[in-house]
């Protein structure tokens, strides 16, 4: 091998060694530098806490409202916030939680993708002794310890659909119904579907469920499903959606089928939803929506932050804190609007 060529081959070796040394040196220097992010508030001697807030998505108004409400609650208590959004990617969310642990946060608030994929993340927090509270989606059964704050999906859906059935009864005719379901891997979607079924049970003389549309929490899938269902059953006159965020798709399909009519107009389809977002508020104000089950985001945010602080303080906290929510409809709209988060963000 010619000398020059031999040297050329050898040349990268010192570079690699230098780089490897630099890396090792940095690693060594870094060991032990994993200091907690808790800071001394200037002159006060009080420690400022840092909380990591990891949301699976900010795709819907509900999540945005929840995210903002939690940040507001933390700011009120002078707690520093680290934010992370996983864009519906469980793997990324796991890495984000690991990052929070690395930064030594004082607590973690998390909206997981589903009940099970979050378990390794909860375990990571448990191992580091960091309290973790799950907002709106509880974890499945496991040895990992967490607290969850969640709307009572079953009860609230049942109450909402029961109100819709009352309206249906007033019409004096039998109704064909459609229910738009969420992602059935999500415990919230299951609770809402079960609430719908429980309300319909015993009222089969009045409500015949002819279509169950699986949306997987996806607007396009919801729209395609509703279009198909309305083609197959043009006489559907009762629709419940498991989330208000699907209303734009549902309304679009209803308009195409000529079925989007105001309450009191001939051909009005009894419409109900869940969440209480801004679209639902506007539809209710305009007289198209009969009722929606409102999750009390402000209650949930406050309960989440309080639970986290209680866990830090070593207090006993129930593993599930339920938000009872409320049903808003044309009859109580004026009274309940101030508590409806969707009405507030519309302002």
């Amino acid at each position: 091998m010619p000398h020059a060529q031999f040297m050329k081959r050898l040349l990268p070796i010192p570079i690699s060694i230098t780089l490897a040394s630099l890396f090792v040196a940095m690693w060594t220097a870094g060991c032990g530098s994993n200091s907690p992010t808790t800071q001394e508030a200037s002159g006060q001697g009080e420690k400022q806490l840092t909380v990591g807030v990891a949301f699976e998505t900010l795709q819907t108004e509900y999540w945005v409202a929840g995210f903002e409400a939690i940040k507001e609650q933390l700011a009120k208590r002078n707690i520093k916030v680290l934010e992370a959004i996983a864009n519906s990617d469980s793997n990324r969310q796991f890495e984000q939680i690991q990052t929070f642990v690395t930064r030594g946060v004082d607590g973690i608030i998390m909206v997981p993708k589903d009940a099970k994929t979050c378990i390794p993340s909860i375990r990571a927090a448990n191992s580091a002794g960091i309290p973790i509270v799950l907002f709106n989606r509880p974890a499945g059964e496991s040895d990992a310890k967490s607290v969850a704050v969640q709307a009572d999906n079953f009860k609230l859906s049942k109450e909402t659909v029961a109100f819709m059935i009352e309206q249906a009864r007033k019409t004096g005719t039998k109704h064909k119904a459609m229910v738009i379901m969420g992602d059935l891997g999500d415990i919230n979607a299951i609770g809402r579907r079960d609430g719908f079924d429980a309300a319909v049970k015993g009222n089969e003389d009045l409500i015949e469920v002819v279509s169950r549309v699986p949306s997987e929490w996806n607007q396009e899938k919801a729209q395609a499903g509703v279009v198909n269902a309305l083609q197959a059953h043009p006489d559907i006159s009762f629709i419940f959606t498991s989330s208000d965020f699907l209303f734009p798709s549902i309304v679009s399909a209803m308009k195409t089928a000529g079925k989007y009519k105001k309450i009191g107009e001939p051909g009005h389809v009894i419409l109900g939803g869940f969440d209480g977002d801004a679209t639902a508020y506007q539809m209710m104000k305009d007289g198209y929506l009969d009722a929606t089950g409102v999750q009390d985001v402000y209650f949930e945010a406050e309960a989440t932050v309080q639970a986290l602080l209680d866990l830090r303080g070593g207090k006993d906290v129930p593993t599930l804190i339920q938000d009872p929510g409320f049903v808003i409809h044309q009859g109580n709209m004026d009274e309940m609007t101030p508590k409806m988060w969707g009405a507030n963000i519309r302002k």
Partner: peptide, 23 residues
């Protein structure tokens, strides 16, 4: 990579910690 690591390590909390390198 080495330059990026060296440049950010002093300013990024926990970046050069053992736990984070494992992450």
């Amino acid at each position: 990579s080495a330059v990026y690591f060296a440049a950010l390590a002093p300013f990024t909390p926990g970046f050069a910690s053992t736990g984070n390198l494992a992450n």
